[in-house]
């Protein structure tokens, strides 16, 4: 049995860990508030943007813009994996990496080459250990990013697509559903997905475009890619903080439990030692009487 001092040291250690996890929980919840309001303010824009683009694309033939066109032969797939830079957020990053890996394996089984673009350090480190090629990486950006990052990564995706480096691009990110729920989500970025069956009423009604449909698409499509990326970034960042918050909350609870059970062990050990000491004294006294 561990000595009293050992157990006491351990209790002190666990209490200190608890302080840290509790502080991290509070920091994460403060950051979450910021990240959550950012994604919530961005969603209306992204939704409207998608609506308009889909509407517009359904009016035009897919051949008007290369970013809309479905390629007949799909050889290489680009996967954009968005994760956090830092760990200590439960299984959040592992879930994202597994989702990406699953997608990659599935595409590979279909005989396609898969290449990765990683935003966030955790995903980058994970993909490095696999055999898949890493085309571009943005580690250490997730703590503080703006549209610029989405724009840069978006340019790589667009250029890669136009130069036939990729024939299809998907994004894997942590969708922020609510504080308790984050989902690893996969979405197709390119070719831009358009509703196949555009509602007939909308398509037949007269619509004016300025400049032409083609001109608008040429302007909107690259931006659409970036909007998608930015949304992925914002979602992932909010999810990361939410995941860290609940992970740290659990850790704090576990610390409490551990302190409880350690205290029990400590008390038992203390009692046992008192009992032995008493026995010694009594034994000694008996012997003296003898």
């Amino acid at each position: 049995m561990a000595s009293l001092r050992d157990i006491q040291n351990k209790i002190v250690g666990v209490k200190k860990t608890k302080q840290i996890t509790k502080a991290m929980n509070m920091v994460a919840s403060a950051k979450l508030r910021g990240a959550q309001s950012r994604i919530e303010r961005f969603r209306p824009y992204a939704d409207k943007f998608n609506d308009i683009l889909i509407d517009l694309a359904s009016r035009a033939d897919a051949s008007v813009h290369p970013l809309l066109e479905r390629r007949e032969e799909i050889l290489t797939i680009g996967v954009v994996l968005v994760t956090s830079d830092k760990g200590l957020c439960g299984s959040f990053n592992a879930n994202l990496c597994n989702a990406a890996l699953k997608l990659a394996k599935q595409k590979e089984a279909e005989g396609k080459t898969v290449k990765f673009i990683c935003i966030g350090k955790k995903g980058r480190d994970f993909i490095r250990k696999t055999k898949f090629e890493l085309v571009a990486q943005y580690p250490e950006n997730m703590t503080n990013f703006d549209f610029q990052l989405a724009s840069e990564a978006g340019d790589i995706v667009i250029n890669g697509y136009l130069s036939a480096q990729f024939d299809e691009v998907h994004i894997v990110y942590g969708k922020f559903v609510n504080i308790a729920k984050q989902e690893a989500t996969t979405a197709q970025v390119l070719p831009a997905e358009t509703a196949e069956s555009a509602d007939a009423s909308g398509a037949s009604s007269e619509y004016l475009f300025e400049p032409s449909v083609e001109g608008l698409l040429a302007e909107l499509l690259p931006r659409y890619v970036k909007v998608q990326m930015y949304r992925g970034l914002l979602d992932t960042s909010a999810s990361e903080h939410a995941a860290r918050m609940s992970a740290m909350d659990n850790a704090t609870k576990n610390c409490d439990e551990m302190v409880g059970s350690l205290t029990l062990v400590y008390n038992k050990a203390r009692q046992a030692s008192i009992t032995t000491q008493l026995m010694d004294i009594v034994g000694g006294a008996e012997a003296l009487k003898g």
Binding site: E206, Y207, L208, E210, P211, G215, E219
Partner: peptide
Amino acid sequence: PGINGEFGVLPNHIPFLSA
């Protein structure tokens, strides 16, 4: 301020999309 010049919109305008 449309990309091809300013345009005005009154209620019941024809559906229209402009950069």
